[in-house]
């Protein structure tokens, strides 16, 4: 088990406010985990902190990936090690085509160098084009995607599919999917779910973050965790999702004596 993502007693604060308050979690390649929690419980804070967002301060704890303490690393260095975050709200980069961006990104994560200040040598255009086209076909993404500006004017569903396309191209070891199902209609959730399913295998570990278990109808997690008030308060299997579906977060809150967030 060399490629574990090991999170130990992690504390994250945002603008001085503690949000993640001592979180422990292990994710291995080949495993599917679901992290569930109500709005505002700190799910995105965890995701951003793991990826190295400069606004999210790590107060204490450790994040070991591949045996390396990643908390010292720049976001791109984490990406090169094989960590990936599908954003809840992907940012638009006007004027930059998805294809141009992805070619540089793929070149960067596949380069030998793990040094985050080095610029990447571009992979050959033909090779990249072929691969991109194949992956787009597999995921049922329209060809026009490649030339559109990254997330600029994309619908909610298109943004999420662009994230999954990036996941497919970058081939990370561990992927965090932050509410990849939110804001999508039933059909879009199904398409995204099936797409992710296609990528799942022994090489990929997934942490699916969601506050509503719809996506989990398509991607069956082996492990389910409930996040409340910055800590994982329950861990278990599929039965936990059933419990949440039936009764919501209230019984869990009561059990752990945590009041509803303001």
């Amino acid at each position: 088990m060399s490629n574990d993502l090991v999170i130990k007693d992690l504390h994250i604060n945002v603008q001085g406010k503690p949000i993640i308050k001592g979180l422990n979690l292990n994710v291995n390649q080949g495993e599917i985990h679901a992290l569930m929690g109500p709005n505002g419980s700190g799910k995105s804070t965890l995701a951003n902190g793991l990826m190295g967002h400069p606004l999210y301060d790590i107060d204490a704890g450790e994040v070991i990936f591949n045996g390396i303490n990643v908390l010292e690393l720049e976001p791109n260095e984490r990406a090169k090690l094989g960590l990936f975050l599908a954003f809840q709200y992907p940012t638009a980069i006007p004027g930059v085509s998805l294809a141009n961006f992805l070619r540089l990104a793929v070149s960067a994560v596949r380069s030998e160098s793990t040094n985050g200040t080095e610029n990447a040598e571009l992979i050959p255009m033909r090779e990249f084009r072929r691969e991109l086209r194949d992956k787009m076909r597999q995921l049922g993404v329209d060809d026009s995607f490649a030339t559109r500006y990254l997330n600029d004017g994309f619908s909610g569903g298109e943004k999420k599919r662009a994230e999954i396309l990036q996941l497919a191209m970058l081939e990370p070891k561990i992927a965090i999917l932050d509410e990849t199902d939110s804001g999508l209609d039933i059909d879009a959730v199904r398409i995204v779910g099936e797409s992710v399913n296609r990528l799942i295998g022994p090489e990929l570990g997934v942490l699916i973050i969601t506050h509503y278990p719809r996506l989990l109808d398509y991607i069956r997690p082996q492990f389910v965790h409930i996040l409340l008030d910055g800590r994982i308060v329950e861990s278990g299997g599929w039965e936990l999702t059933q419990l949440l579906e039936a009764e919501g977060y209230e019984p869990v809150r009561e059990k752990h004596g945590i009041a509803e967030a303001e």
Partner: peptide, 20 residues
């Protein structure tokens, strides 16, 4: 952050934003 989380160096990321 978005671009760097995909592996781009800070220079590559800001150059890409300017070119865009």
């Amino acid at each position: 952050f978005y671009l760097m989380s995909r592996g781009l160096s800070e220079e590559e990321a800001s150059t890409m934003i300017v070119n865009g």
